[in-house]
Design a binder for these strands. Structure first.
Lengths: 252, 252
DNA sequence: GTGTTTATCGTCAGGCAGACGACTATGATC
DNA sequence: GATCATAGTCGTCTGCCTGACGATAAACAC
């Protein structure tokens, strides 16, 4: 990395968060309403400036905590109570992406189990879970009939990238369990896959696949009937993080 | 993205390049020798500051051109003459990663066919292709007996991340062809996989797999005998970018 | 009890990968 | 020119995994 003082230019660096969860059989993302110009009143991804003394992942974890109360855990330490998966997604640095100044945003992807209503933090007027379908369908109408304005800044493509990352990553990793509570059933895990991929999966083949993959699921011994029907075994996420062979996403 | 002037802190933003190629059956990366402090005389990844008016990918493409003469092509437009694959890898922003100031580096990954000797650019004293094994094996001895000092800054983990990305991405994409000249044989493509993965592959099963995947390879009609033995058919990369089902990397 | 819902086990056929035999076409060597 | 070494290409066989789908089990609602 050559160092040429004449070439140095100051940038602002932010982290933006794509926080995904599964609610009511739909993949949802956390959106905050902007309280200031530009894009005042529009929905945006949560985020904020990186502080002078913190690492990028620290900044992302701090923002996640401020917005959701979730504690991010390391990719190394898997299942944890009240913890969300957090990983870096990509960095966006178009010179014109923020009209005020040159801002480079390091987007992060967080996957969380279904949560109570989010608490608004920082200068955002409010925060909510919105289906990614509504958020990405520009100019359309949301579920509640409200006109769905496109997300602020370049947050729509960032969200799309995050969703695509999540969709592909649950294929070959055990990441889908990050959308589940600490104990869950095979059916609940299947509904996660169905919501994220937007497809229907065969319950029998899915059951065979996930219970047959060593280290993916460990039975807790308990059962639950919270979904109705025959009681289902409860599982926790096992130590395995990589699925080999992967879970196959049905073709379009 | 809330805007709080009191929270704003200026950062320097750079791009660093992990440029990989396959030479003499080994995966090699481009390294430049640092001409200045800190880490003067040590090997480092090529890179430089992002200019005020350019996008991150533009900055990466410019650095790549300066260091190698290669023209990066879009991920959309696949095979191209004298073009290299270029994609964003990850961003590194530890507050202490550069002792001079707060620098956030957006690392990019470039894959190039075997090239003539690199030309040194910028303030780097020299540039060379070095096997990634030598570069990552800290404190060991390189192929030429030279003491292999660790890479400058945090470039060793960046290189490791780039290598891992390349290793996993050739599994499920046609990216391995980016290491090949415009026309190549199945055997040459197989040697790319073997060099990147560091394994031996069965020539017959590999041949069946790559020729049986629709859109991966298109025959040019020509043959070559540059590898010795029976003349081999020449191919170009086909339009397919995703391999489904993927090429399976043999287990360790 | 009957019906509904969900969970779980089994079966069967097709596809693909790994292991490996066989044959082909070139250059190198004697 | 015969032989050998080298690389490329085509087949075969077996085992595993997946998709499609039948069948059974265990709860709740009426």
């Amino acid at each position: 990395m050559p160092y040429d003082p004449s070439a140095f230019a100051p940038f602002a660096v932010t982290v933006d968060l794509v926080v995904l969860t599964v609610r009511r059989h739909a993949l949802c993302a956390l959106a905050v309403r902007r309280g200031e110009s530009p894009f005042q009143g529009r929905w945006a991804l949560p985020g904020g400036f990186v502080r002078p003394d913190e690492d990028l992942s620290q900044a992302a974890a701090r923002e996640l905590m401020e917005e959701t109360g979730l504690c991010a855990h390391d990719p190394d330490a898997p299942a944890q109570a009240n913890g969300a998966h957090l990983e870096q997604l990509a960095t966006y640095g178009d010179p014109k992406r923020d009209p005020r100044m040159r801002v480079v945003s390091v987007a992060h992807l967080a996957l969380a189990p279904d949560l109570p209503a989010p608490r608004a933090g920082g200068d955002a007027k409010s925060a909510r879970w919105a289906s990614v379908e509504d958020l990405l369908q520009q100019g359309g109408y949301g579920r509640d009939g409200e006109q769905a304005a496109p997300l602020a800044f370049d947050h729509a493509p960032i969200l799309a990238d995050g969703v695509e990352r999540a969709r592909s990553k649950i294929e070959y990793s055990s990441l889908a369990t990050a959308f589940c509570p600490p104990e869950f059933t095979v059916g609940e895990l299947r509904r996660v896959y169905e919501a994220v991929w937007g497809v229907a999966l065969d319950p029998r083949n899915f059951h065979r696949k996930v219970t047959g993959t060593p280290g993916f699921l460990v039975p807790t011994g308990g059962t639950t009937t919270r979904q109705g029907g025959r009681p289902a075994q409860l599982f926790r996420a096992g130590g395995a993080t990589l699925l080999n062979p992967p879970m196959l996403r049905p073709e379009v």
